[in-house]
Amino acid sequence: MSILPAPPAPIHLLDLAAEHAALQPALDEALREVMDAAAFIQGPAVGAFAAELGQYLGGAHVVPCANGTDALTLALMSLELPAGAEVIVPAFTYVATLEAAALLGLKPVLVDVRPDTFNIDPAAAEAAITPRTGAIVAVHLFGQCADLEALKAISARHGVALIEDNAQAIGATFQFASGETAFAGAVGEVSTTSFFPSKNLGCLGDGGALLTRDTARATLLQQLANHGQSRKYHHQRIGLNSRLDTLQAALLRVKLRQLPHNTAARQAVAARYDAALAGTAGIAVPARDARSTHVFHQYTIQVTDAERRDDLQRFLKGGGVPTMIYYPLPVHAQPAYAYLGYRAGQFPVAEQLCGSVLSLPIHPLLTVEQVAYVAQLISGF
């Protein structure tokens, strides 16, 4: 049995401790300001962060909320769909995409994804539209945009809303055939994001937000996220209690300033992986849609012989390289969603991806030597 070489330095799937250490003085100052003001709920940092993020994303209205799942729920609530309306979602996604619809009494309708980008297949989405369809949810998976050109056209053609789930692709852009470039999250009626700590823009706890270019919808979302009230004790709608803590907003303001640098660093790491893994038999590196930038929330390879994917994961773990499988079980196979009546084999691309994808370590501080070491292990396997 061969002895694996030691990594050049400990390798982390992501290294939040090191990222935060570089920002510690600014994070400490943000914490101190919130503590001194003692405005822990809806303090001034919340509005300031919303304005700064909106400016970063090209002028969108940003409505902060408690987490990314609440954001999806609020986005659907803002559409005011009738009970039982259908919401088209990709079959290869995190369960929250379905969960938000199901909790509101809406019906998730699954469609398959593209085998190259892993994003929702626009042709499959259009084929699934019925008179009961209220919305299509486009998840910008792993860091690059779904086909917003096709999805926007389909949405307009059939009169259904387009929701963008931008939790993994904040800051990514998409170029349309007209030459117009738009940020992910700025194309549909409303989009959602998450500030879960592992996200490219993550807080030190939980948090989320909604984005829209529609001022009236932004006002509606603000009401829905705050007990449905327009002013204190005056409730026009049934809403949620979904707030971004002032402390988290203050910390996110610090991290937002670092986001362009971190995005460029992630892209550089991905380029090194591409070069190091080029020509390696048995794997496929992440495909790129030439119309979209990729912010690499994940660097996800495919193991072409799916039966060896788990063996490769164990081999890498033995060499000190952590990996993750996003996602090991397709959503239609989850017991909670058996009531939808889907069967094995209905979404062959999603099912194949669940058996073949493997996400490698990627974060802004991953070194050239560490990337080379990971690639060496993969090639050796």
Rank of each mutant, 00 (worst) to 15 (best):
residue 2 S to T: 15
residue 6 A to C: 04
residue 8 P to D: 06
residue 14 L to W: 15
residue 15 D to F: 10
residue 16 L to E: 09
residue 16 L to T: 12
residue 19 E to P: 00
residue 22 A to Y: 02
residue 26 A to P: 00
residue 29 E to D: 09
residue 31 L to W: 07
residue 34 V to P: 05
residue 47 G to E: 15
residue 59 G to T: 09
residue 61 H to Q: 12
residue 62 V to R: 02
residue 63 V to Y: 03
residue 67 N to V: 01
residue 71 A to G: 04
residue 76 L to Q: 06
residue 76 L to G: 01
residue 76 L to R: 01
residue 77 M to D: 01
residue 77 M to E: 04
residue 78 S to Y: 00
residue 78 S to P: 02
residue 81 L to Y: 04
residue 87 V to H: 03
residue 94 Y to I: 12
residue 97 T to I: 15
residue 99 E to T: 10
residue 102 A to H: 07
residue 104 L to C: 08
residue 113 V to F: 12
residue 116 D to S: 11
residue 119 N to S: 09
residue 120 I to H: 03
residue 123 A to F: 01
residue 125 A to M: 11
residue 125 A to W: 05
residue 133 T to R: 05
residue 136 I to V: 14
residue 141 L to V: 14
residue 150 A to K: 11
residue 162 L to R: 09
residue 164 E to A: 13
residue 166 N to D: 15
residue 171 G to P: 02
residue 173 T to K: 12
residue 177 A to D: 15
residue 179 G to M: 07
residue 181 T to S: 10
residue 182 A to F: 07
residue 185 G to K: 03
residue 188 G to H: 01
residue 188 G to N: 11
residue 190 V to Y: 02
residue 193 T to W: 00
residue 195 F to A: 03
residue 197 P to T: 05
residue 199 K to V: 05
residue 199 K to E: 13
residue 200 N to T: 15
residue 206 D to E: 15
residue 211 L to R: 03
residue 226 N to M: 06
residue 227 H to Q: 04
residue 228 G to Q: 08
residue 239 G to M: 07
residue 243 R to S: 03
residue 243 R to Q: 06
residue 243 R to W: 01
residue 244 L to H: 03
residue 272 R to N: 08
residue 276 A to D: 06
residue 278 A to G: 00
residue 288 R to Y: 05
residue 290 A to R: 13
residue 291 R to E: 12
residue 299 Y to P: 09
residue 301 I to F: 13
residue 303 V to H: 03
residue 304 T to M: 15
residue 307 E to P: 00
residue 313 Q to D: 12
residue 315 F to E: 01
residue 320 G to K: 02
residue 324 M to T: 12
residue 327 Y to E: 11
residue 330 P to S: 14
residue 331 V to Q: 14
residue 335 P to C: 14
residue 335 P to R: 11
residue 337 Y to S: 01
residue 340 L to S: 06
residue 345 G to V: 14
residue 346 Q to Y: 08
residue 359 S to Y: 12
residue 364 P to G: 08
residue 365 L to S: 14
residue 370 Q to D: 11
residue 373 Y to G: 06
residue 376 Q to V: 00
residue 379 S to M: 06
residue 380 G to Q: 12
